[in-house]
């Protein structure tokens, strides 16, 4: 077991140090924000767009809408809608987000799918179309790229996740990023997640998150990310097919980033 742990830690650390870049996609999902984005290996509706391989763990189709209010500044807010459709032989995921204001906006759309290639290993991929629009003399830009993810079930309660965004940054000038994460279902009610991400020349960011089902319908979340240094808090409430989540990121310099998400699960 110790040997396995050593191998996992080595992989985790090695992958974290690979070259990455500034991500263009504003991450969504209040549940992900509540655990400081340590969701590369954690199941969930919005996690499927942080690591497409996680779509294989989704058992019911669902649609979701999310709003992220960065630093409580409306001009920096981002809106997104997504859907995960469970089909045979492979599930599909659709995501579209809008970031910006009247002077500059960025629309991100993606279509992804995933497949289970072994009992414990899944792979996922997503094709992204990114459109940037500006006023004045700045020209509009469009990019097509892809992202891919992998999950590996190490033990009954431990999952390793890897994700890479735009590995062809030399071809399209869009920066890339890379993430690695561990998800530990410590008990029925408690989930712990650890992750690391590297984007561009930014320092390596290490994240950890905790999600606790304090009651059948209520989930409390907390987390911490090292770069930029921020504490995360969140909560989720489920009522029938409807699930609502709220998440907050607290940074000492930039202030509070808040997010809310509504998810409807179609049985």
């Amino acid at each position: 077991m110790l040997r396995w742990n050593a191998v996992l830690v080595s992989v985790f650390v090695f992958v974290s140090w690979l070259w990455g870049g500034e991500p263009l996609y504003v991450p969504h999902g209040a549940d992900a924000i509540g655990t400081a984005f340590a969701v590369t290996a954690s199941p969930g509706h919005w996690s499927c767009f942080h690591n497409q391989a996680l779509m294989t763990d989704v058992t019911s189709s669902g649609v979701s809408a999310s709003l992220v209010n960065r630093f409580m500044i409306p001009a920096l807010s981002s809106k997104a809608v997504s859907a995960v459709i469970v089909m045979k032989p492979t599930p599909f995921g659709l995501v579209a987000s809008h970031y910006g204001n009247a002077d500059y906006c960025r629309i991100f759309t993606g279509l992804g799918s995933a497949v289970r290639i072994a009992k414990t290993v899944s792979l996922g991929v997503q094709i992204d179309y990114i459109s940037e629009r500006s006023i004045g003399e700045y020209r509009d830009l469009s990019h097509v790229t892809f992202e891919a993810g992998m999950t590996c079930l190490i033990s009954k309660s431990l999952t390793l996740g890897l994700h890479i965004f735009n590995p062809v940054s030399l071809l399209n000038t869009i920066p890339s990023s890379i993430e690695a994460g561990l998800h530990w279902q410590q008990s029925d009610d408690l989930m712990l997640a650890f992750g690391s991400s590297k984007a561009g020349n930014e320092p390596l960011s290490v994240q950890c998150g905790l999600s606790w089902n304090v009651m059948d319908r209520l989930v409390l979340r907390s987390g911490y990310m090292s770069s930029p240094s921020a504490f995360a808090f969140g909560m989720g409430f489920r009522s029938g097919h409807l699930k609502s989540d709220a998440g907050f990121l607290l940074n000492g310099v930039t202030g509070v980033t808040s997010s809310i998400t509504l998810t409807w699960t179609i049985k």
């Binding site: 009610d189 905790l210 606790w212 907390s222």
Partner: peptide
């Protein structure tokens, strides 16, 4: 101070 399981303690 939260102790969600016997093996985890969380302080804030």
């Amino acid at each position: 101070r939260a102790k969600p399981s016997g093996r985890v303690t969380f302080n804030l």
